[in-house]
Amino acid sequence: MDNPLTPRSNDKGLAAAAKANAPIENQEAGSFFKQLLGFWVTFVTQFKKPNTVQYPEGKVPTEERFHGRHQLNRYDDGLEKCIGCELCAWACPADAILVEGANNTEEERFSPGERYGKVYQINYLRCIFCGLCIEACPTRALTMTNEYELADSSRSKLIFEKEDLLAPLRAGMLQPPHPMQDGKTHTDYYLGNIKGGSNA
């Protein structure tokens, strides 16, 4: 019976290794042209367009779905999408994310609904860019950008805080805290019925 755990006989491999390690005995002295043929690839490549990128002066765009730095998104009026549920932290296999939730109040609202992420940290020394956090996010608050230039000179600089991760304010967006749009409820926000900027 085939037991997948029993190693198969490795005779072939051993033979190949022995052959590779054997001293080269029969060098054909007269095969100059054969050796010249070996440079053919080198010769032809001289006339091709080089693949080398002059990084950092020159950059090539990544694939669209490249897993880069994270971003915490906002609704059109600037309210944060993050509800501080910690599902990203839960999903993270590298334990790179720390979230602490807190209560929204009528006076101080950061996100629609009751809860927002008060503390949000991603530790890029730990992050393995697997994207499980993004799949876990119930509000699409957390997505990944294509930004990959994350090297820095100290450990603490690689722990990104909420303000480092939040998406920039676009036109019409207002920096939270501010109330929800007039007459809208958190359900409208979750269902994507929010268009236009804040009227706060």
């Binding site: 501080g84 910690e86 932290a89 602490e100 939730g101 807190a102 209560n103 009751e114 809860r115």
Partner: peptide, 9 residues
């Protein structure tokens, strides 16, 4: 305790 933590924390 509202919204303070998750059990795994």
């Amino acid at each position: 305790y509202r919204f303070r933590a998750r059990p795994f924390d």
